[in-house]
Amino acid sequence: MGLVRLLRIIFYALIVRPFLIFVLGLNVRNLEKLYVSDSARLIAANHNSHLDALVIMSLFKISQIHQVKFVAAKDYFCRTPFLEWFSINIIGIIPIDRNGATKDPLGPVQNAIKEGYTVVIFPEGSRGKPEKRENLKFGVAKLMECNPEMKLTPVFMHGLGKSLPRGEALLVPFICYINIGDEMIWSGNKKTFMEQLEIRFDDLEKEISPKDWK
């Protein structure tokens, strides 16, 4: 086992996961649906907080965690050379350019999929307003279209937007509710796929029936 992989396991198993379990508390439904396949696939989750990706990464088993990466903004996670190294190797991000400077912003994601990684993606793009779902972006459908064999697992989370919403530095503990859906396959059409994904998120959200947060 390489040193970087070991550091990553230490980071998630000994720091991130205990912190999330003790300070926030994770209430997970259908966790087994996250472990179904070892082949490359997408995990699509709603986005409320910086903590979203860390929570999903923490749900994976120690033996799997080195095969998982999540898509994140290059301008934020790669501000300094050390941060860039740490984000890519230890946290496990796929940095993407969201300023439109590169022609194919999804290129790095495609590469990771080809290399067999499980890729976590947030189709809403940005975190937006706390505990409010934003419109889904088409990037996720593009990835599915390019990799029609690939499966997608939808994950709905509630609570992190209360604990650490966008623009807040103060963490206030709330339990994070997570609901994992059945695997989805490529529908053959971007528009219908996005509609299906939207419906899946609605259903997963309804099962949790989050409390008001106005």
Partner: peptide, 12 residues
């Protein structure tokens, strides 16, 4: 207390 605040409806 954390469980309690997570199940009651609250405001931002």
């Amino acid at each position: 207390f954390k469980e309690y605040v997570s199940i009651i409806p609250l405001r931002q």
